[in-house]
Amino acid sequence: MSTPPSPPNLLAGRYQLERVLGTGGMGVVYRARDLLHEAFGEPNASVALKLLGETFCACPDAHVLLYSEFAVTRSVQHPQVVRAFSFEVDIDQQLAFFTMELMHGMTLDRLLVECPEGLPWQELQPLALQLLDALAYTHWQGVLHGDVKPANIMLGEQGLRVFDFGLGQGAAQMAAGLPGLSRSRLNAWTPAYAAPELMAGGALSASADLYGAACVIYELAQGQRPGTRQPDQPLPRPRRLPTQCWPALRTALAVDPACRSITVAQLREALGTRRRPWFL
């Protein structure tokens, strides 16, 4: 399937596109009105709608890749993960797309711009725990996110939402033989958050997701990214992170994946500890 540079305003006779919410390496996400639900009096008839971007629209299996992302997202039912609704095809326009919940709030990359010194621990800790809860659950479900970074995490009234599984993969989808994303098609990873082994062409893993999450937490606590390092190069403890939490986060940030001897769940447990009162 192919897609014109600008999609029509109405898809499948039902979804009216309103504006672009975001763009990524694989697709474009729009805010859209679901006119069918609106006609039946649904008060919240707006959705987020994802189409393939121009980079992928000419690929012969592009629509299958988009379905793979939808299937991976739909398989994860967690309060801190975006909900996928339906995969559809506009036959007349030859456009595949899927819909998901419309999230309200700001992405963490925007939050970091507003908080250049990082967040106080009492504000950061619940965000870190929600992020790690979401990833621990996705891994338990056999799903890898593949692109954990601030721009793919939304903060709203209901807490965090992790979204954009376009570079991810699920065990069920792999078993079904659905095609995955070939990194040779584009420069997929964001270097500041991608595990070094991914940048070197290695396979996606739960450990790579852990590294990305640890980079996000470090930046939230320090106001700066960990940056590119050599395996033996020390990393300073983030100024907002309690001392007792640093060993676990430092391990999750290990450049050598063999030294990343901790899981997402274990990092969550380490960051969930309370500070000891000073008078004990």
Rank of each mutant, 00 (worst) to 15 (best):
M1G: 13
S2R: 14
S2C: 06
S2Q: 15
T3F: 08
P7V: 14
P8N: 09
G13S: 10
R14M: 10
L17H: 08
L17V: 04
G22N: 06
G22K: 02
G25P: 00
Y30I: 00
Y30A: 03
Y30H: 09
R31P: 01
A32K: 03
A32S: 07
R33K: 11
F40P: 00
F40L: 12
E42D: 15
P43W: 05
N44W: 10
S46W: 13
V47H: 03
L49I: 05
L52K: 01
A62T: 02
H63S: 15
V64C: 05
V64H: 08
L65I: 01
S68L: 06
S68F: 00
S68R: 15
F70D: 01
A71E: 13
T73R: 02
V76M: 01
Q77A: 14
P79M: 10
P79Y: 06
Q80G: 13
V82M: 07
A84C: 05
A84V: 02
E88S: 08
D90S: 05
Q93I: 00
L95M: 12
F97I: 00
M100C: 03
M100I: 02
M100E: 05
H104R: 13
H104G: 12
G105Q: 09
M106R: 13
D109L: 10
L111H: 09
L112N: 01
G118A: 11
P120W: 07
W121Y: 09
W121D: 07
Q122V: 13
E123Q: 15
Q125E: 13
L131M: 14
L135I: 14
Y137R: 14
D147H: 04
D147K: 03
V148N: 04
I153W: 04
M154F: 07
G159Q: 08
R161S: 12
F163W: 09
F165G: 02
L167W: 00
Q173S: 11
A175F: 00
A176K: 06
A176T: 00
A176Y: 01
G177M: 06
L178V: 02
S182Q: 15
A188L: 06
T190I: 04
T190G: 08
Y193T: 04
A194L: 05
L198H: 04
M199D: 02
A200H: 04
G201Q: 07
G201H: 03
G202S: 09
A203K: 03
L204T: 00
A206P: 00
S207A: 15
A208Y: 07
D209V: 02
L210W: 04
G212M: 03
V216I: 10
A221L: 09
Q222P: 10
G223T: 11
Q224H: 10
R225D: 07
T228H: 14
P231V: 08
Q233D: 12
P234C: 11
P236M: 09
R237C: 13
P238D: 09
T243F: 11
T243N: 12
W246T: 08
W246E: 07
L249T: 00
R250Q: 15
L253C: 10
D256R: 14
S261C: 12
T263L: 04
Q266V: 05
L271H: 06
R274Q: 11
R275M: 12
P277W: 08
W278P: 05
